[in-house]
Amino acid sequence: MGAGVFGGLLVRAGTSLVLAGALLAAGPWGPEAEAASGCSGRPVKTVRFATGELRLYKHRAYVCAMTIAKRPGARRAMSVSLQPRGGRAATDKGRFTRHAGPVTVYALHRSVRASGAVAGVGATTGWILL
């Protein structure tokens, strides 16, 4: 039987292809990627900027936000803020290696405003109804 390289693994033809398919299904977009997101719910908006991105998720009456660094590694200033219209902002800021947040607010039938920054560069959504 033939052999080949698949994703850095030596894969033999035949029964090993089933194993390779299982490894592919459990790749970086599997359960670990969900756990790394930190926010439950469905993604509703992503705002990209030079040093990272601001991600918003919605689950029932709640909205969640996180700021994700484009290049994780060294500790640097990061922040995320999420405010429902007429309510107080939930914020997380500090020196992080990967992300700031998650922060969650109750926003049933309310607009929200989110902002995030990594190393002094950031973005904001303005008021949006999700």
Rank of each mutant, 00 (worst) to 15 (best):
M78G: 01
G7C: 05
K70E: 12
Y62E: 15
T104R: 15
K70T: 01
H59L: 13
T51I: 00
K45Y: 03
Q83V: 03
C39K: 06
S40W: 02
V103W: 02
V105N: 12
T125M: 11
A65K: 09
A117N: 02
P28Y: 06
Y106H: 11
A77T: 02
L56K: 05
A22C: 04
T124N: 13
G52P: 00
T91R: 15
A119N: 12
G86I: 04
S115D: 10
I68T: 03
S37Q: 07
G120Q: 10
D92P: 00
L23N: 09
M1V: 08
A69V: 00
V80S: 05
K45T: 05
G2F: 05
Y106F: 10
L56Q: 06
G126P: 02
G27F: 01
A35R: 15
K45M: 13
S111W: 02
T15P: 11
T51S: 06
A35W: 01
G101T: 06
G30M: 04
A26H: 07
G8H: 07
A123M: 08
L23K: 06
A123Y: 04
L23C: 08
V47K: 12
L10P: 01
K45H: 10
K70W: 00
G86E: 10
I128Q: 13
K70L: 11
L56V: 04
F6N: 13
V11S: 11
R113E: 13
G14S: 11
T124W: 04
L130S: 08
G73I: 07
A22I: 10
S16R: 08
P31V: 13
K45S: 12
M78S: 03
A61S: 11
W127N: 12
T15H: 11
K70A: 15
G94W: 02
V47P: 01
L10I: 12
L56Y: 01
S115E: 15
V105S: 11
D92E: 10
Y106S: 13
G38R: 03
A119D: 15
G94I: 04
A74M: 07
F49V: 01
T51F: 00
A69E: 01
A100L: 03
R12N: 08
A89W: 02
A22M: 11
G7A: 09
G87E: 09
G86F: 02
R95T: 05
G38I: 02
R95L: 05
T67E: 05
G27H: 06
L129M: 09
R12T: 09
G86N: 10
A119K: 05
A107D: 06
A65G: 09
R113G: 03
M1E: 14
A117L: 01
L9D: 14
S115A: 14
A35Y: 03
A77S: 08
G38H: 01
M1S: 12
T125I: 06
G94T: 05
